[in-house]
Design a protein around this nucleic acid. Structure first.
Length: 466
RNA sequence: GGUGCCAUCGCCAAGUGGUAAGGCCGCAGCCUGCAAAGCUGCUAUCCCCAGUUCAAAUCUGGGUGGCACCUCCA
C-alpha cells in the first residue's frame, strides 16, 4: 500500500504504527446545514481508503467527528427559534441517511464535540501548563504560535512580516497575529460551557486534537495516529493548528500520514453559498441513483479537483451500466469468494494511492472478456464462477455494483409507468410473433417516448431507463 | 501581495525518465426482422519556447492559460 502524503508531498509506502492495525481520523461535518457534494466527495474518498486498507488485511479504526458546537449552529438556532440539539440532531440524521445512499459505511467511531468537552479542557490545561497557551484579560485562551518552533511546517507556509504588522492592531490581546483561540470567553447568555478558564466555548481547531487524543491515539508511538484526512482547504489553518496543539500538548506528533482530497466545483465554478450554486447531496439524490453519484465522484483521482457537470454524469453512468448489464446476464447465479487474478490486480491498483482510474480500466477489461466468452456457445461454468467472485469483490472494495441489476436500470420510474411499459412490451411481443413489425416498431417508439430503451435477448425483452 | 496546484484525443481520465491505459462519442464489421445490448477493428506524441539526457508527457528554466489556500468551509 502506498499513500501520497500531502505534508511530505511524496508518495510513501504505508507502514502502520502498529502491525496489522490502522488508525484513521477524518474531519467530519459541522451539522448546521445539508451536506453538499463536497462533503460527499470527502466521505467517499475515506470510505474507499478504509475499504482498501481492510482488503489489504488491516484492522481499521476510523473516526470521523461530528461538530455540534459552532457559531453557525447557534446562529441557525436563533434564526429558526429552535433548540441547538434539534438543529444538530436533524442534520446529523440527514447526513447519515445521505451518506448511506451513496454507499458510505459508518465510521468505527463518530465522536461529537459536545461529548468531548472534558478532553478539550484537559488539552487546554496541558498547553497552558507547558507554556504554549495563555489567557487574556478578556478571558480568551490563545495558543502561542511563537512557542512552537515547528508551527507552519505542516502547510509549508512562511510567516509574513508585513501581514503580521498589519494585524497586530486589530487583535491587541494576542501575542502574535497567528495565535488562534483555544477557548473563547462568552459573556452573553447564549450557549456556554463551564471551564476552569471561565464560561465560554471551545475553539474549533481544538476539538479534533482532543477527540483524537481521547478516542484514537496510541500512547507509546511517535505519532498519535497513522493517517489524518480531510478536504484540501483544511490543511491551513485547521490541520496546522491541530498538529501544533497535539505536538505541544502531548508527547507525540499528530499523524504519520496526511491525506487531503481535492475540491468539487460545479460546472467549472467554485461551489459556495454566496454564488448560490451549492449543490446539495439531497437534491442530487433526487436526480441520480446514489450509486451513480458514488461512481461518478470516484472516477477522478481523489487529490484532483473535481468538476461536477450534469453532462458528464450521464457520460460516466454508461460505464457503470456496462457492469450492471453483465450482472443481468449472470442474474440468479450464486456468488462466491474465489481468489482470481483480477481481484489481485484490482487491489494492487487501488493500493497505489487509490488509483481508481486504472482499477476501472481493469474492470472494463474484465467485463469485456466475460461478455465475449458468454457470447460464444457453451456453459462457461468456471468463467461464470470467477465473474461472480469478481463482481462481489468490486462491490466489497469499491462499493458499487451491489444492486439488483434490473432495479438499477429502473431508477426514477414510478410503478404506474412500469406497469404500462410491461403491458406495451407484451403487446409488442404479440405483434412480433405475428411478424407485424410495423406495429411492433410503433410500440417500441411509444415506449422510447417514455424514456425507456428496449433490449431483445434470448432470455426475453428487457427495458432500461435511458 | 504571499504560498501552492494544474494544463494529456471532441468529452471524462490514467501514466512522474524508456518510447501515450481505460471509458464516452464517431467510423467500419459481426449479431438482429430492424433496433438496442454485446463483441471485433480503427481514431492523440501529451499548452508554447529553450535546456539536461542515449532517451522526456514525465526533469530544469522561461512564457501563456486555469485554479486553490492565506477568513468559516469537505
Amino acid at each position: 500500500m502506498h499513500i501520497f502524503d500531502s505534508v511530505q508531498k511524496t508518495k510513501r509506502k504505508f507502514i502502520p504504527l502498529k502491525e496489522g492495525k490502522v488508525t484513521l481520523y477524518v474531519c467530519g461535518p459541522t451539522v448546521y446545514d445539508d451536506a453538499h457534494l463536497g462533503h460527499a466527495k470527502s466521505a467517499l474518498v475515506f470510505d474507499l481508503l478504509t475499504r482498501v486498507l481492510e482488503a489489504n488485511g488491516y484492522e481499521v479504526t476510523y473516526a470521523r467527528n461530528i461538530t455540534d458546537i459552532d457559531d453557525k449552529i447557534i446562529k441557525k438556532a436563533i434564526e429558526q427559534k429552535k433548540d441547538i440539539k434539534t438543529i444538530t440532531d436533524f442534520y446529523t440524521e440527514a447526513f447519515h441517511t445521505e451518506m448511506e445512499a451513496i454507499g458510505v459505511k459508518r465510521p468505527t467511531l463518530e465522536p461529537k464535540a459536545t461529548q468531548s468537552l472534558e478532553a478539550m479542557i484537559d488539552l487546554i490545561q496541558k498547553l497552558i501548563d507547558k507554556g504554549h497557551a495563555y489567557q487574556t484579560t478578556e478571558g480568551d485562551v490563545y495558543f502561542d504560535t511563537a512557542s512552537d518552533s515547528k508551527y507552519l511546517t505542516l502547510s509549508h507556509r512562511i510567516q509574513n512580516e508585513q501581514d503580521r504588522q498589519e494585524r497586530i492592531a486589530s487583535s491587541a490581546q494576542k501575542k502574535n497575529h497567528a495565535d488562534f483561540a483555544l477557548w473563547k470567553s462568552v459573556k452573553d447568555n447564549t450557549v456556554t460551557f463551564t471551564s476552569p478558564f471561565g464560561a465560554g466555548r471551545p475553539g474549533w481547531h481544538l476539538e479534533c486534537s482532543a477527540m483524537i487524543e481521547k478516542h484514537l491515539a496510541y500512547s507509546d508511538t511517535p505519532f498519535a495516529i497513522d493517517i489524518h484526512g480531510g478536504g484540501a482547504d483544511l490543511l491551513f489553518p485547521h490541520h496546522e493548528n491541530e498538529a501544533a496543539q497535539t505536538r505541544c500538548g502531548t508527547n507525540h506528533e499528530l499523524a504519520n500520514y496526511w491525506m487531503h482530497n481535492g475540491f468539487v466545483n460545479i460546472e467549472g465554478e467554485k461551489m459556495s453559498k454566496s454564488l448560490g450554486n451549492s449543490f446539495f447531496l439531497k437534491d442530487a439524490l433526487k436526480e441520480y441513483d446514489g450509486e451513480v453519484l458514488r461512481f461518478y465522484l470516484l472516477t477522478t483521482h481523489y487529490r484532483s479537483n473535481f468538476n461536477f457537470s450534469i453532462f458528464t454524469v450521464k457520460l460516466i453512468k454508461t460505464r457503470l451500466d456496462k457492469l450492471y448489464r453483465l450482472k443481468k446476464r449472470l442474474f440468479g447465479l450464486t456468488t462466491c469468494n474465489d481468489d482470481t487474478a483480477f481481484k489481485k490486480e484490482l487491489l494492487a491498483e487501488l493500493s497505489d494511492d487509490l488509483n481508481v482510474s486504472t482499477a476501472l480500466a481493469l474492470i472494463d477489461e474484465m467485463i469485456s472478456k466475460a461478455n465475449e466468452t458468454l457470447d460464444t456457445a457453451g456453459k462457461h461454468k468456471l468463467l461464470k464462477r470467477e465473474t461472480m467472485a469478481n463482481l462481489a469483490y468490486i462491490e466489497e472494495v469499491l462499493g458499487f455494483g451491489g444492486k439488483n441489476p434490473f432495479e438499477y436500470f429502473q431508477f426514477g420510474i414510478d410503478e404506474a409507468t412500469k406497469e404500462k411499459i410491461n403491458m406495451l412490451i407484451e403487446q409488442r411481443n404479440a405483434a412480433k410473433k405475428e411478424k407485424d413489425f410495423a406495429l411492433s416498431d410503433k410500440i417500441r417508439d411509444e415506449i422510447l417516448s417514455l424514456g425507456v430503451n428496449l433490449m431483445d435477448t434470448p432470455q426475453g425483452t428487457f427495458w432500461e431507463k435511458v
